[in-house]
Design a protein around this nucleic acid. Structure first.
Length: 273
DNA sequence: ATGTTTGTTCCGAT
DNA sequence: CATCGGAACAAACA
């Protein structure tokens, strides 16, 4: 599910909602496995105070006073929910009981398909999170030269390269598809055939769609899987130009739905060259 | 029953 | 050894 805009929205909302709270208790579904292991996780996290919330690429980090970092990756169907009272939520895997001076809340990690990850790390260095990412398209926008170099270094379709988080961090299947439409580039083009001008358009388009996604609090597809921490859907899906579309909004041509490296791709054969 | 699905990692081929 | 593409991870829905 979540690409950068969804993860960014969740991170910002958590930042406003849970900093200063103490984690009174942690419950893990015994069928579910966290890192390093369920027993150690509970021991390490229980009783700790939350001092910060941040995002690295599509990872959410909750900093705990003096002890370390809670790490969440939502993958395809992960959710983080903040509830005021006990509420039945599907696919709940880990539950944190939070207590602050003026409230008690329940923080839940839910994940239908269980591709996501929950872990505790004593520090960032132990987490691998610092190594594998290219520049964050929102926090550390690359300049054209470094973007070009990273893109041309790869031998694959431009769509596939945009999904490679070690090239640039943040795009997923939907926003990469939208960015390529906005830039007028055929997603199946080999990345090393793009001109400087096309790369500039693509970089600008990628940053634009991610910012618009954030402004609309993310995208919720027809399956309703993505919701924010309050359980509310995003609305950027109402502004998709090409993803899931039949007709090109620019020229009216039929949109082609193809697969590139196994991922569903939409493009206009007339507007994207 | 079969084919889809917002992400990432691992493995075999090149 | 590095890189790429496909399979796998697992669950629900049409």
């Amino acid at each position: 599910m979540p690409e950068l805009p969804e993860v960014h929205t969740i991170t910002n909302d958590l930042k406003k909602s849970i900093i200063g709270a103490q984690i009174l208790d942690v419950k893990i579904d015994p069928q579910y496995k966290v890192i390093p292991d369920n027993n150690s996780f509970v021991k390490l996290v229980k009783g700790k105070k939350i001092t910060g919330v941040s995002r690295i690429a599509k990872n959410i980090l909750i900093e705990l006073e003096n002890t370390g970092i809670l790490h969440f990756h939502l993958a395809m169907t992960g959710r983080i929910l903040l509830r005021d009272k006990k509420t039945p939520d599907n696919w709940t895997r880990v539950v944190f009981l939070l207590k602050a001076d003026n409230y008690s809340r329940i923080l839940k990690f839910s994940d239908m398909r269980m591709f996501g990850k929950v872990g505790f790390y004593a520090d960032l260095a132990g987490s691998n999170l610092l190594k594998k990412y290219g520049p964050d398209l929102i926090f550390a926008t690359p300049d054209l030269d470094s973007f070009s170099k990273a893109i041309k270094n790869k031998k694959s379709s431009i769509k596939n390269v945009l999904l490679d988080q070690s090239v640039v961090a943040g795009l997923g299947n939907i926003y990469a598809t939208e960015a390529l439409f906005l830039a007028g580039i055929d997603p199946s083009r080999l990345s090393n055939t793009l001109s400087k001008d096309e790369l500039q358009k693509l970089l600008t388009a990628a940053i634009t769609v991610l910012n618009e996604g954030i402004a609309h609090r993310g995208s919720t597809l027809p399956d309703k899987m993505y919701v924010d921490i309050f359980g509310n859907p995003g609305s950027y899906q109402e502004h998709f130009k090409i993803y899931l579309k039949d007709k090109c909004p620019r020229c009216g041509s039929g949109v082609l739905n193809t697969k590139i490296n196994g991922r569903s791709t939409y493009h206009c054969p007339s507007c994207q060259k």
